[in-house]
Simulated assay, not measured.
Amino acid sequence: MEINEKARGELFNEINGLSTESFNKKPSDDEWSIKQIVEHLCLMEGAIAKMIQGKLENGEVVNAEMKPIEAATNRKIKIDAPEFALPGNEFATLEELKTKLNVTHQTLLKIEELADEKELKIKGFPHPVFGQMSLEQWIPFVGYHEMRHILQIKEVKEKLGL
């Protein structure tokens, strides 16, 4: 979870100190606010943790080669968020979402700590871009996915003049 810890630290460095107004402000109608980006990260991490847990308990052995998950940070390649990870338009505070992020992060951390390493290597589920991925690779994928969105947050801050 080294990349995940690094990403979370960088995320908090980018968002700490933002006013509630700035956190919720969209640069344009068709772009996400920083709040929506953070909510998306929370939804993704929670869903991935739940999926990993489910596959550890009931998943089948898959043939998943190592994927170049670091490529997830490339913002030049547009990827639509899955329906379950689309953020809402509701107003939220930075502290509310940081609390939710901490919960999803601790859940993923606990799964990694308690899981059988062999099970993480041999079980998996497909990623929409990378194809079949082992559960072992899904854990650091969360960190790379977060790094991608930290770049997006920096773009939004620049557009908002923050």
Rank of each mutant, 00 (worst) to 15 (best):
residue 24 N to I: 01
residue 75 R to I: 02
residue 91 F to W: 10
residue 46 G to H: 00
residue 84 F to D: 14
residue 60 E to H: 13
residue 44 M to Q: 00
residue 25 K to P: 07
residue 48 I to L: 15
residue 55 K to S: 11
residue 48 I to G: 06
residue 61 V to Q: 09
residue 20 T to H: 09
residue 26 K to D: 06
residue 34 I to R: 01
residue 91 F to T: 09
residue 77 I to F: 13
residue 48 I to M: 13
residue 37 I to M: 04
residue 88 G to N: 14
residue 57 E to K: 13
residue 52 I to P: 12
residue 94 L to C: 10
residue 20 T to F: 03
residue 43 L to E: 03
residue 25 K to D: 11
residue 23 F to H: 04
residue 56 L to Y: 11
residue 55 K to C: 06
residue 82 P to Y: 15
residue 75 R to Q: 05
residue 67 K to Y: 07
residue 31 E to N: 10
residue 36 Q to T: 00
residue 22 S to V: 06
residue 25 K to T: 09
residue 30 D to H: 12
residue 70 E to L: 13
residue 86 L to I: 13
residue 76 K to V: 08
residue 30 D to P: 06
residue 63 N to R: 08
residue 62 V to T: 01
residue 42 C to I: 11
residue 84 F to T: 10
residue 39 E to K: 09
residue 79 I to N: 10
residue 34 I to G: 01
residue 55 K to F: 12
residue 75 R to T: 02
residue 33 S to Q: 03
residue 51 M to C: 06
residue 33 S to N: 03
residue 92 A to S: 14
residue 91 F to N: 10
residue 64 A to Q: 03
residue 57 E to D: 15
residue 77 I to R: 12
residue 47 A to M: 10
residue 61 V to A: 09
residue 83 E to W: 12
residue 37 I to C: 03
residue 77 I to W: 06
residue 57 E to T: 07
residue 40 H to A: 03
residue 83 E to C: 09
residue 73 T to A: 11
residue 41 L to I: 01
residue 43 L to G: 03
residue 89 N to C: 06
residue 24 N to V: 00
residue 90 E to N: 15
residue 85 A to K: 04
residue 55 K to I: 04
residue 75 R to N: 06
residue 54 G to K: 08
residue 52 I to C: 08
residue 50 K to S: 07
residue 83 E to R: 14
residue 79 I to D: 07
residue 93 T to V: 02
residue 82 P to L: 14
residue 63 N to P: 06
residue 90 E to R: 13
residue 57 E to M: 11
residue 35 K to P: 03
residue 21 E to P: 04
residue 85 A to L: 05
residue 34 I to V: 02
residue 85 A to H: 05
residue 19 S to R: 00
residue 24 N to G: 04
residue 56 L to I: 01
residue 36 Q to A: 06
residue 76 K to A: 14
residue 86 L to W: 12
residue 78 K to A: 12
residue 26 K to P: 09
residue 73 T to E: 14
residue 26 K to R: 15
residue 54 G to N: 12
residue 21 E to T: 05
residue 20 T to R: 12
residue 54 G to M: 06
residue 65 E to V: 10
residue 25 K to V: 02
residue 40 H to V: 02
residue 31 E to W: 08
residue 63 N to I: 07
residue 30 D to W: 03
residue 76 K to Y: 07
residue 35 K to R: 15
residue 54 G to L: 05
residue 89 N to W: 11
residue 66 M to E: 15
residue 53 Q to A: 15
residue 67 K to V: 01
residue 93 T to D: 08
residue 22 S to G: 00
residue 55 K to R: 13
residue 75 R to Y: 01
residue 28 S to Q: 06
residue 24 N to H: 06
residue 66 M to I: 11
residue 47 A to P: 00
residue 79 I to K: 13
residue 25 K to L: 11
residue 27 P to R: 02
residue 48 I to V: 15
residue 81 A to W: 09
residue 91 F to L: 08
residue 28 S to M: 05
residue 54 G to F: 08
residue 24 N to S: 04
residue 79 I to L: 14
residue 77 I to G: 08
residue 46 G to F: 00
residue 53 Q to E: 15
residue 58 N to H: 14
residue 37 I to L: 02
residue 66 M to T: 13
residue 80 D to T: 14
residue 21 E to K: 08
residue 38 V to N: 02
residue 49 A to G: 11
residue 94 L to S: 09
residue 33 S to P: 05
